[in-house]
């Protein structure tokens, strides 16, 4: 056997443990949810389980609440993804450039993400509370007008995004920082010796080298943003007037409060299509930038 052939076989050998776990605990449930999506399946009345074809999908497309939820999810994603990436990248570059105290700053930025979203949620609900909350108390103290952080349809989603950034931007910037640190220092030294200034260095050398990791960050954050659930659920329960109820919250309520598993599964697949579309566009875009 040639070395190359052996390498190919060994490749799958190294993949084997993951493939087994993935097949059992992801592929099988996915198969189940695919099956559910063409069924009427009410957990509370199993005698009425029946095949309904694409009925669930048609229902979803005609469901105003589904579209409203889709709009809320898109709005969150549009606000969240760019601000997240810009902030996380800046923080990572800032930390990378620090000659002292980097580890302390990294720990401080990372700390909020260690708290459970449930706790972060109750804390921020109190911060944002319009009449009795901390932020408006401070604003009033500074002689400014209190703001309807969570009770206004225009304000609520940006407020949720702000809390989400606080909660998760540290994690993303730690990932980017780890990637920066993996770039051999010699590359920077060589470039600096050539007299390259900071920003050209950044765009010509650093970012291209980071491309695979940035791709990871973009894709996972996109997925995370489209599946947002915990933060709006805890802060507003989806209000005001359902304007912050995202698709995953609607799916959750459909499947577990109303026990309509089939309909919930169908909506999950529609959400999957939207995310996949976005991820594909981003992938193309990042790839094209590469060439």
């Amino acid at each position: 056997m040639t070395y190359l052939q052996e390498r190919k076989l060994t490749g799958w050998l190294y993949l084997a443990p993951f493939v087994v776990a993935f097949t059992t605990f992801v592929i099988v449930p996915i198969g189940v949810s695919l099956w559910l999506s063409v069924m009427r399946f009410d957990l509370t009345s199993r005698e009425s389980v029946s095949f309904v074809g694409l009925q669930n999908f048609q229902d979803a497309l005609k469901d105003d609440y589904f579209w409203q939820a889709m709009k809320a999810t898109l709005w969150f994603a549009v606000l969240m993804i760019p601000s997240m990436l810009i902030l996380a990248l800046s923080l990572a570059l800032g930390m990378h450039a620090m000659n002292r105290g980097r580890n302390v700053v990294r720990a401080m930025l990372f700390l909020p993400g260690m708290f459970n979203v449930a706790v972060a949620g109750i804390l921020w609900q109190w911060f944002y509370n319009g009449e009795f909350g901390l932020f408006n108390f401070w604003l009033k103290g500074a002689g400014l007008a209190p703001q309807p952080w969570l009770s206004d349809r225009g304000f609520a989603m940006p407020s949720i995004v702000l809390m989400s950034l606080w909660w998760s931007v540290g994690g993303t910037s730690v990932v980017i920082l780890a990637a920066l640190q993996q770039i051999p220092k010699q590359i920077f030294e060589a470039a600096t010796l050539d007299g390259a200034a900071y920003f050209p260095l950044l765009s010509k050398i650093t970012l291209p080298l980071l491309r695979p990791v940035l791709m990871f960050v973009v894709v996972t954050n996109t997925i995370g943003a489209f599946q947002v659930f915990g933060q709006p659920f805890l802060l507003t329960r989806g209000g005001p007037e359902l304007s912050t109820r995202g698709v995953v919250q609607y799916i959750y309520e459909t499947a577990f409060n109303n026990y309509r598993m089939g309909y919930g599964a169908a909506m999950s697949w529609l959400l999957f299509l939207v995310i996949a579309l976005f991820a594909l566009v981003q992938y193309r875009f990042l790839r094209r930038g590469h060439q």
Binding site: R7, K8, T10, G11, W12, Y14, L15, V19, F22, F25, V26, I27, P29, I30, S33, L36, V219, T220, I223, F226, Q227, F229, V247, V248, I251, Y252, A255, F256, G264, A265, S268, W269, L271, F272, I275, A276, A279
Partner: peptide, 25 residues
């Protein structure tokens, strides 16, 4: 080791992350 089809498999793995996991419960 460039396992043949490895990248396509990775694509499937990433795609699977796009399905809301609540449904798997």
């Amino acid at each position: 080791l460039k396992a043949p089809g490895g990248n396509a498999f990775l694509g499937v793995v990433v795609a699977s992350m796009m399905i809301p996991a609540q449904l798997f419960l």
